[in-house]
Design a protein around this nucleic acid. Sequence first.
DNA 1: CACCGTTCAGTTGAACTAAGCAACGGAATTCGG
DNA 2: GAATTCCGTTGCTTAGTTCAACTGAACGGTGGA
Length: 405
Amino acid sequence: MAQKQLKNFFKTFLTKERIFSNKQVLQSNYLPDNILHRDDQINMLASILAPSLNFEKPSNIFIYGKTGTGKTVSVNYTTENLLAVSKEQNVPLKTIYINCKLKRVADTEYRLIATLIKEFSNVSVPFTGLPTDEVYRIFYELLDKEKIMLIIILDEIDQLVKKTGDEFLYNLTRINSDLKNSVISLIGISNDLLFVDNLDARIKSSLGEEELVFPPYDATQIQDILLERAKKAFKEGVILPGVVEKCAALAAREHGDARRAIDLLRIAGELAEREEKDKLSVEYIDKAQHKIESDRILDTISTQPKHFQAVLFAIINSTSNYRNKDFISSGVLYNEYVEICEKTGLRPLTQRSVSNIIAELDMLGLIDANVISKGRGGRTKEIRQAIPPSLQQRVNEILQKSLGF
DNA sequence: CACCGTTCAGTTGAACTAAGCAACGGAATTCGG
DNA sequence: GAATTCCGTTGCTTAGTTCAACTGAACGGTGGA
């Protein structure tokens, strides 16, 4: 684009009749001031948390529900209001929200406590080198220095427990008995409904003092939510009939994931806008659906560590069509992987580690791995790539670039 | 043909190791009087 | 002589390795019909 044109481009971009009136509303961090179809849960939550305003320790709460059922929004909404009131009443109340799934933020016990400390005050804790007890002690001292009511919200807590065991939950629930001034209360949020079953009994009883379940939304509920948001986000008359309905239907099929529905609507809007349309028609929903999926895949791939990428590259390389085999077994894959490592100057990991990587890639949904026993032929994992064909070209490019081919 | 022990090629869990980091404490150095 | 800096030691986390037990169905041998 020549420079003159570029200037014009930006100008018209600004003056262009835009589809959105307030896109913020569809952003994932937007906190609506009215949450639909979650009155029961919010009321329940509020009544459990309310005693904190009298400086009485509220029960620990355990919240389950699939993704996009409004868990996080409801909790944020409730605590937000609680905080506002506490400020008016001069109650020293504080909440900390931590998403345990984030890598390198809170994926071990040590790091969880370290981030708690960082969120709580600006004291920074070295990211390695200290004994975990020491980190607990620092947290505890900071906490007890003044009188404070702390509510800790641990999102996706099941991920952390699965990875590092439930020790930290026990420690956190036990801290209260040592604190002289302050009180902490936990809210655990989990996507996995069966998660509590394999917790230690002590923890189960102390964390699960109260339990809340967020059922999936059905199609009409999602429609309500979408309509509400759409009214604020889009200019009037932009959305053609059937769009919201289609969005809702698609999301309802995916276990009632409202976040997905909202994303869908936003992306669809963005796509339409980019094509300089002033109406949002149904076809953009399909395009958005497609885009979301491909963005997710491309994003997860490009943010993986090198060895993950090397393994994935090996898988893609040896299962591409020209080799008329659509799966690869772990032994063959390992050799292939070592070869790639040699080419790129990467020191190959052992088979054991690659096995872990395969498991991880499987979890991410980038590949499909099944353990099969071939009798005397031993046992293997049959590994297939699960990347839609339309993306393979781009995935390949990303991997090659990142691996330095 | 049915049954059963063997065998293969990885899988998987647990213990272990190396690397990187922070804190501690003693030795060396600096500094002000 | 006190304060500060330097440096080796210790003890920690974490990523990855090593070790070894385990797996599950086809293979092939055995015995019974």
